[in-house]
């Protein structure tokens, strides 16, 4: 099967999943106990007339499946409506917050690769030696540390005690030096667990690959050990890391929800948590949908990258 065919097949398989994601997101509002109209009115008592007109306005008087179709159609045109709480356009609010999360998540991801890959390689090559033990324990600690707590401790040490960082974001544009400096602590906080995951995964997949015949062939050819490891073994081991890139994205999103709260970072995570606190369901729905769709699309991209990295896959299936 050619690469193009493979991609096409993967895209087709993704469609039902995307539909499922919209259905689950949509039903969030409807499986909640109580009447959805209460959400719209903010749980206040209103006139029957007002309520009826609101019902009509939000389409709540129509059958559920019709409401779903209308909602999907709106979503497809990126029309998310207005927040009944703030009165602001939901799409615009999200567009405002999204860059913050993308930048934070992206830099945390980069950090996790910068730390996780070399650490994983070293641990695998020095299996059983002190370097391996140390990175193994460090990785376990990275996974076991609650990220919000790590953020708080970092703030305590570097913000409150040493005064190197502000405790809340500066009033500056996203891409300003001040803002990027401030972003350092959240990036470390968010990237730690991810780096630990990458390291552990790479270590075990490298150990598996090191037992493969081609490693022996490469050595028998007279290649330098460095070339054997970083060219032959790493390329194969990274395939395993790429397969969990999707998992890593969900981990980063989960992390962002919490870390943004710790550092008052005005991203999607904070938006979501605040919206739940205010019972601002259209914002919750739109945020959850966006996250779900992003993960699905990211997984699709991961699969395509994977098939590029591993030439066998295109032919096997």
């Amino acid at each position: 099967m050619s690469l193009a065919n493979y991609v096409l097949r993967r895209v087709v398989v993704t469609i039902p999943v995307l539909l499922g994601v919209t259905a689950i997101t949509f039903s969030l509002l409807h499986v909640a106990p109580g009447d959805p109209i209460d959400v719209v009115t903010g749980f206040q008592n209103v006139d029957d007339d007002v309520e009826a007109s609101l019902r009509a306005e939000y389409g709540l008087d129509r059958p559920v499946w019709e409401q779903y179709l209308v909602w999907v159609a709106d979503v497809l045109t990126l029309e998310f409506g207005e927040s009944p709480v703030t009165g602001r356009d939901v799409g615009a609010t999200i567009a405002e917050r999204l860059p913050y999360t993308l930048l934070l998540g992206g830099s945390a991801w980069l950090l996790s690769l910068l730390i996780g890959i070399p650490a994983g390689v070293v641990a695998a090559v020095k299996r059983g030696e002190p370097a391996d033990e140390v990175s193994r324990i460090a990785a376990l600690a990275g996974i076991a540390t609650p990220n919000f707590w790590l953020g708080l401790v970092l703030l305590l040490v570097f913000g409150v005690h040493l005064g190197w960082f502000r405790v809340i974001p500066p009033d500056a544009p996203l891409l300003s030096l001040e803002m990027l400096w401030f972003m350092l602590l959240p990036t470390i906080t968010l990237g730690t667990a991810s780096a630990a995951l990458v390291m552990r995964l790479l270590r075990s997949s490298m150990l598996r690959e090191l037992n493969e015949g081609y490693v022996r062939t490469a050595r028998a050819k007279g290649l330098r050990e460095r070339t054997v490891i970083w060219k032959h073994v790493l390329r194969n081991s990274l395939i395993a890391v790429v397969t969990v890139a999707g998992l890593q994205i969900t981990l980063l999103v989960d992390g962002a929800v919490v870390v943004e709260q710790v550092f008052s970072w005005p991203g999607m995570g904070r938006l979501l948590v605040d919206a739940i606190g205010r019972r601002d369901f259209p914002v919750v729905q739109a945020s959850v949908l966006l996250i779900g769709v992003t993960v699905v699309v990211a997984n699709l991209l991961v699969d395509i990258t994977y098939s590029y990295l591993d030439p066998r896959i295109r032919y096997d299936r």
Binding site: G20, A32, P33, T250, V253, I291, N299
Partner: peptide, 24 residues
């Protein structure tokens, strides 16, 4: 498996948050 795939699209914590938001 389609159900699993679909639920997998939502990060663990986000899904839990959404469920808590619904259930209270």
């Amino acid at each position: 498996m389609r159900l699993v795939d679909t639920l997998y699209a939502f990060p663990f914590l986000v899904l839990a948050i959404a469920i808590v938001a619904v259930l209270g």
